[in-house]
Simulated assay, not measured.
Amino acid sequence: MRIWLQKHTVAGRLPLLDKWYEAHLNAIIAPDTTIDIHTLPEGTYDDATPFDYVGFGNLALRFNGYFAETALTAEREGYDAWIIAAGQDPGLREARTLATIPALGYTETATFVAAMQNHRFGVLGFMPKLREPITDNIHRQGLSHLLTSYQIVRDGAEAVRQALDGSFDLFLDSFGRAAEAAAEAGAQLLIPAEGIPNEIFWHLGIHELHGLPVVDPAGLAVKTAELLVGAHGLGILGRTAAGYWFRRPEPRVSDHVERVFQGHLIGRA
Rank of each mutant, 00 (worst) to 15 (best):
I3W: 05
Q6W: 07
H8S: 11
T9I: 14
A11R: 15
G12C: 10
R13F: 02
L16W: 00
L17D: 01
E22R: 14
I28E: 02
T34P: 01
I35V: 15
D36R: 13
H38T: 01
P41A: 11
T44P: 04
P50Y: 11
V54R: 05
L59P: 06
A60H: 01
F63M: 14
G65Y: 09
Y66V: 05
Y66M: 08
E69G: 13
E69W: 05
T73L: 15
A74L: 06
A85D: 14
Q88L: 12
Q88S: 15
A95Y: 03
R96A: 04
T97S: 14
L98A: 10
T100M: 12
L104N: 03
L104P: 05
L104W: 06
N118Y: 11
F121W: 03
L124A: 08
G125Y: 01
P128G: 01
L130P: 00
T135D: 07
N137F: 11
Q141G: 08
S144R: 09
S149I: 11
Y150S: 04
D155R: 06
G166Q: 03
E194G: 11
G195K: 02
L204G: 11
L212F: 00
A221M: 06
V222N: 02
T224N: 12
H232S: 14
G235W: 03
G243F: 02
W245N: 08
P249I: 02
S254H: 13
D255W: 04
E258L: 15
I266K: 14
R268P: 03
